[in-house]
Simulated assay, not measured.
Amino acid sequence: MTDTALVVIDMLNTYEHEDADALVPSVREALPSVRRLIGQARSASAPVIHVNDNFGRWRSHHGELVASALAGRHPELVEPVAPDEDSLFVVKARHSTFYGTPLDYLLGQLGVRHLVLCGQVTEQCVLYSALDAHIRHFDVSVDPRAVAHIDPELADAALRMMETNMSAVLIRPGDSVFGTARA
């Protein structure tokens, strides 16, 4: 059993918003690394937890969010990372994966102490989730290749902030983050 979980942030997206055209190229670039992390987590029997905006649809459930994203402008960016039957799912309404969600409770029930964050958007939801995880005393890792951004300069600054101010580990090629409990 591992104390590490993968948190996949906001990868279910219709790409029908004002920043979509700036975001899509970065999502295309990050997608293979997000898929790689999902595969590594599943191989290590680590929890894969999708945390996603509900886009203001307060009666929606994860199946409906998946269907909406797949019916959106870029289903090819959604389908490869859509939650499977073993994935856990948390709906969020704001930027942080923790704000107003049961994520903290779920992680406690799973015995998770280390979060690997991936998804979108680096300078927004990933950054705020890393901060909220840090103040809750979780160890945090982020793979810079598995996060997508709108603004590359802000994304670089966000990654530096996570590493410097939140003690986040930036995963490098070849690093192993799943499989064994951290001390």
Score class of each variant (00 low, 15 high):
residue 65 L to H: 07
residue 43 S to D: 15
residue 138 F to D: 00
residue 132 D to V: 11
residue 153 E to L: 08
residue 9 I to Q: 00
residue 14 T to G: 03
residue 132 D to N: 14
residue 138 F to P: 00
residue 96 S to H: 11
residue 120 Q to W: 00
residue 50 H to A: 01
residue 70 L to G: 12
residue 20 A to V: 03
residue 62 H to S: 13
residue 94 R to P: 02
residue 22 A to C: 01
residue 26 S to G: 08
residue 103 L to C: 08
residue 93 A to W: 11
residue 155 A to S: 07
residue 109 Q to P: 02
residue 60 S to Q: 09
residue 147 V to G: 01
residue 75 P to L: 10
residue 7 V to K: 04
residue 29 E to R: 15
residue 66 V to F: 00
residue 63 G to E: 15
residue 170 L to T: 08
residue 68 S to N: 12
residue 91 V to D: 04
residue 24 V to M: 05
residue 53 D to P: 01
residue 176 S to I: 13
residue 7 V to D: 02
residue 175 D to K: 01
residue 107 L to N: 02
residue 51 V to E: 01
residue 143 D to F: 00
residue 154 L to D: 09
residue 155 A to Q: 02
residue 101 T to Y: 07
residue 149 H to A: 05
residue 24 V to N: 03
residue 5 A to C: 04
residue 89 F to K: 06
residue 176 S to K: 14
residue 125 C to W: 06
residue 53 D to F: 13
residue 120 Q to L: 12
residue 4 T to V: 13
residue 159 L to F: 04
residue 14 T to Y: 02
residue 49 I to E: 00
residue 127 L to Y: 04
residue 143 D to V: 03
residue 36 R to H: 14
residue 135 I to Q: 12
residue 84 D to Q: 11
residue 166 M to G: 06
residue 15 Y to G: 10
residue 152 P to E: 10
residue 132 D to C: 10
residue 65 L to P: 03
residue 82 A to T: 10
residue 180 T to Y: 12
residue 17 H to I: 02
residue 114 H to P: 02
residue 24 V to Y: 03
residue 110 L to D: 02
residue 51 V to L: 11
residue 27 V to K: 02
residue 126 V to M: 07
residue 73 R to Q: 10
residue 118 C to T: 05
residue 133 A to S: 13
residue 119 G to P: 06
residue 95 H to R: 13
residue 113 R to S: 13
residue 146 A to H: 01
residue 148 A to Y: 01
residue 79 E to L: 14
residue 142 V to S: 07
residue 40 Q to R: 15
residue 65 L to F: 03
residue 162 M to S: 11
residue 140 V to M: 01
residue 133 A to I: 04
residue 26 S to F: 11
residue 148 A to M: 07
residue 178 F to G: 08
residue 170 L to W: 03
residue 83 P to Y: 07
residue 50 H to F: 06
residue 107 L to T: 11
residue 174 G to Q: 11
residue 52 N to K: 09
residue 103 L to V: 07
residue 23 L to R: 03
residue 145 R to A: 15
